[in-house]
């Protein structure tokens, strides 16, 4: 009864392997590693450039985002706390209304460039986090 090892043995060449086989395998591995490292460096560079473009798209519009935000000063918070102590239901409704107004104002003020910039930043940051968290670099060090 033949098992898979017998099949593998049958598939192996009968000729003796060339003397420089080990060197060729090592050279091939080094080439593959070099290529993958170069590709990764290019990808990193592209992502850095894309992130800069994303920031360039967002920064001019950051003022709009900040001005549309509700008044978060300490005085306003104190006023809200005292209102909450006087009539909790009404102040909570007012709070939800303020948030809804802010979100709708923000949504109407957002333009495609801002959203695009945020999307680019999200993608770049996600790639960076995955790259840092995955053990690819460590594995590569071990292999090298």
């Amino acid at each position: 009864m033949s098992d898979w090892l017998d099949d593998l043995l049958e598939m192996m060449p009968v000729d003796p392997y060339p003397e420089d086989l080990a060197e060729r395998v090592q050279a091939r591995l080094a080439l593959v590693r070099r290529r993958s490292r170069r590709t990764r460096h290019v990808l990193h560079l592209v992502l850095v450039l894309v992130s800069i473009v994303g920031l360039w798209l967002i920064l001019p519009r950051a003022e709009m985002f900040l001005t549309s935000a509700p008044n978060l000063s300490l005085g306003a918070f104190e006023e809200w706390l005292s209102a909450l102590a006087r009539s909790p239901g009404e102040s909570l409704l007012n709070f939800i209304g303020t948030i809804a107004t802010w979100i709708s104002g923000l949504a109407s003020a957002l333009d495609i460039e801002f959203v695009l910039g945020l999307g680019i930043l999200t993608a770049s940051a996600l790639y960076g986090v995955i790259n840092l968290l995955s053990n690819g670099a460590a594995q590569e060090e071990v292999m090298a």
Binding site: F65, I103, L106, A107, L110, V115, L118, G119, L121, T122, A125, L126, G128, V129, L132
Partner: peptide, 16 residues
Amino acid sequence: VLVIVLMGAVSILSLL
């Protein structure tokens, strides 16, 4: 740093 950038961007986008 990357996670706070990611969360900030996702938070703003999720408001829509």
